[in-house]
Design a protein around this nucleic acid. Structure first.
Lengths: 246, 246
DNA sequence: CATCCAGAAAATGAATGCAAAAGTTCCGTA
DNA sequence: TACGGAACTTTTGCATTCATTTTCTGGATG
């Protein structure tokens, strides 16, 4: 009658050291798909992946079911799995949900964040500002992500954190290809919004920060999807030939 | 190079007519767990469920992996699956995420809802008010849920809808057992909040509705978890008096 | 009497097997 | 040549099998 203990596994977000083969395969396959190793809409070759991972079909198929539940792939009956192709509508929806989650994170962060954490975010902010001044898009983007992650961390909500990570994974490919910062105007706006975010955070103004973050994500969405429209309507067949002019 | 079409299956939320055995089992098993047929923290008997559903272990185990990813159960390596026991902290977090999702739903609903839909919600509201006056808790609760679902529907975001359904399933058992409405005071407050919700919806005041809904859920959370504390410790805990600053 | 350990029984995790469905090839016909 | 369809190959979905691990049982030992 001893209350049994045990460490739960199978976190939604991939953790480092998996024990079960299933968990290991799940993480690796998720990364494999998120990193874009399979074209959107293309088949997920079961047998081939089995050879690649050196396992049998059973654990791989279990991982496929989970990835399907996560929305990364879709299962067609008797026709196997395909990498999910995100429509314009899907992206709209995903960005909005991300906006809602960040909005929530900001609100909760205002309830829980410490002065030290705010100071840390401020440091990141100024670092990011430096990249902005130098037009260093890549590093700007990196720091930007880290700031948002810090806010999510400060929300002190593991479930929110896991959910956020899940959705972030689903749009990661698009986010990278978006490169919204190409537009000077938008970039400047984003910086100003980030200053407002910091300000609201300092004042622990939860509702206000919630609002700012939602609109901030909306602006990101617009930039990212406008870019998508350009790529799609401009040259249908061109898969990777963006004109890098500004 | 032919763009292949096909109807995606494997929706996160269970739909009516499943085709694959796996999907069918997933839905049925999810319902089975959510409805509380297995005690919290208890083992999920693989073999027994196989017999019950009349299938082999393979599709059942696939479903278990998915349910684990959804957070309904947890998998202990070499020791099988157990119904996830939600700690006080988990419940806090889940309610807050629900609050964030409803908050988002309200904001989006203000952008998209039609007058007809508002009229429909108004009818439900007055129906609910009738149940309130008659102290008919069960029907009050039913209508209450339907109103919140209507708002989520009006958000016009399928991903939000699916995510909301997922989390709603995870706390369903607690929500039912919560029976917050037992407390007269809280019940009256909830009614007033619902009037404010309707008002903000009519004015399409997105940010405002977002705020109201979050605090509405926070109040629900407090009521539900205070009730939990009573049940667990025997004495009402005075740990729930957070600063709900705006 | 409690504890520890060996062995049996059961459950788990993964591999393999098999029937059915989908996809492919190839040939006959208009 | 274009089309259709029959036969073959591949893939999928699920069942079954097998090696480990855990859990249960029972008895020996301090």
């Amino acid at each position: 009658m001893i209350p049994e203990d045990g460490v739960p596994l199978t976190k939604p977000a991939g953790n480092g050291g998996e024990i079960s083969l299933h968990g290991e395969i799940l993480s690796r396959l998720r990364d494999y798909v998120v990193e874009g190793n399979i074209a959107e809409g293309a088949r997920v070759p079961e047998r081939q992946l089995c050879e690649m991972f050196g396992i049998s079909r059973t654990p791989l198929r279990e991982a496929l079911k989970v990835l399907a539940a996560e929305g990364l792939i879709e299962l067609l009956p008797n026709r196997g799995a395909r990498v999910r192709q995100l429509s314009r509508r899907d992206l709209d929806e995903l960005f909005d949900v991300m906006g809602g989650l960040e909005s929530l994170a900001g609100r909760l962060a205002c309830e829980n964040i410490t002065d030290e954490e705010i100071a840390g975010i401020e440091r990141l902010h100024y670092e990011m500002y430096g990249h902005y001044l130098h037009r260093d898009m890549h590093n700007y983007f990196q720091i930007n992500q880290r700031i948002h992650e810090r806010i999510v961390d400060a929300a002190r909500n593991q479930i929110l954190r896991a959910t956020y990570a899940n959705f972030a994974g689903r749009i990661r490919r698009v986010r990278y290809s978006a490169n919204f910062a190409r537009k000077r105007q938008r970039w400047g706006e984003a910086m100003r919004e980030h200053e407002a975010i910091l300000d609201a955070l300092r004042r622990r103004a939860g509702s206000e920060l919630s609002d700012i973050l939602f609109h901030h994500l909306r602006a990101k969405r617009a930039a990212a999807l406008d870019h998508l429209d350009e790529a799609e309507t401009g040259a249908p067949a061109a898969t990777s030939s963006p004109n890098l002019n500004s």
